[in-house]
Amino acid sequence: MSPPHTRRWLKHPWLSLLLGAAWLLLQHSVSVFHLISAALIGLIVPWLLRDFLPAPKTLRLQPALRLAGVVLWDIVVSNITVARLVLGPMARMQPAWVPVPLALTDPTAIALLATIITTTPGTVSCTVDEERHEILVHALNCTDPAQMAAEIKARYESPLLAIFEDGAGHADALQGETS
């Protein structure tokens, strides 16, 4: 267990590293002055924002890296698909609204799922319905909304469950929803 002062000042170590790295990239320099400035920014800004930032989460690295690979691949493939759709005959497109039931409960994971969906060309997450516990997705071209919802759950939500929540228990629940 780390001493109290370490927990207090480095409550968000990844944010501290990200802020410091961003500062160095903006300065285009790794001089001693800029390294010290980056370290101070990385320490002070998260400390000043401590009351506004949620408690840091323990993330599972291997599923996160796997998800990042899947998302990057899907972005490339979707860009090609959307380009073909846009440059081809417009009659081929079948836009659709796709409700995707959520097994996720963590607000950060739900926000990340919405971001992944919106970042992937051809789909946009429009709203998260908390009462129905689903996310509404608009797809540029969708012939089978149920299949698209199942793909979103399998490709993105299932890994997010493994990253943010108890993967074993939620994975069983996810299998029951998609069956």
Rank of each mutant, 00 (worst) to 15 (best):
D51E: 15
L24E: 09
T118G: 10
L102D: 04
I135V: 05
T108V: 08
A109C: 07
L160S: 06
I36D: 15
V82M: 03
A114R: 01
S179A: 07
L104Q: 01
P63S: 13
A173N: 13
P4I: 06
P3V: 02
T143V: 14
A55R: 14
L87P: 10
L113K: 02
A96G: 11
N141K: 09
L48D: 08
W14F: 11
C142D: 08
H34A: 08
Q27L: 12
R8L: 12
L18C: 13
D51Q: 15
S2P: 03
S2R: 05
Q27S: 14
V71R: 00
A139T: 02
P145D: 09
T108R: 11
M148Q: 05
P89Y: 03
H34Q: 09
A21G: 12
A21M: 14
W73A: 00
S2H: 05
R50Q: 13
V98T: 03
Q175P: 07
L35G: 15
P145Q: 10
R60S: 13
S179M: 06
L17W: 01
V86T: 06
S179Q: 09
L174Y: 12
T6G: 09
I152C: 04
T81Q: 00
A22I: 10
S125M: 03
G69R: 00
L136F: 12
V71P: 02
A109K: 06
L40S: 09
V100G: 08
K57Q: 08
Q94T: 03
L113D: 01
T58V: 13
T120E: 01
G42P: 11
L72F: 09
L113T: 02
G122I: 04
V77P: 11
G167A: 14
A91K: 03
P89Q: 04
E157K: 11
A96F: 08
N79D: 08
I152Y: 02
G122H: 05
V32A: 10
G122S: 07
A168D: 15
G88A: 02
I117N: 00
V71D: 00
L67Q: 05
H28C: 05
R92G: 08
L87V: 04
F52W: 15
Q175F: 06
R66S: 10
A68C: 01
T105V: 05
W14D: 08
T127V: 10
M148F: 05
A146D: 09
D51Y: 15
T108Y: 08
G69H: 01
S37V: 14
G69I: 00
I163D: 03
I36M: 15
V100W: 10
A150R: 07
L160Y: 07
L161G: 03
P63T: 12
P99C: 04
V82R: 01
E131R: 11
V82I: 05
V137A: 07
K11A: 08
D172Q: 12
F52N: 13
A55K: 13
T115A: 02
P4M: 03
A139S: 02
E157D: 10
V71I: 04
W97M: 06
A96K: 07
L25K: 15
F164Y: 12
R132E: 15
L49F: 05
V71S: 03
Q62Y: 12
H5W: 07
V137G: 09
T119N: 02
W73M: 01
G69N: 00
I80A: 00
R8D: 10
I163A: 03
L43N: 10
G176T: 01
L161N: 04
E130T: 13
T81R: 00
G122A: 07
V124K: 09
P159N: 12
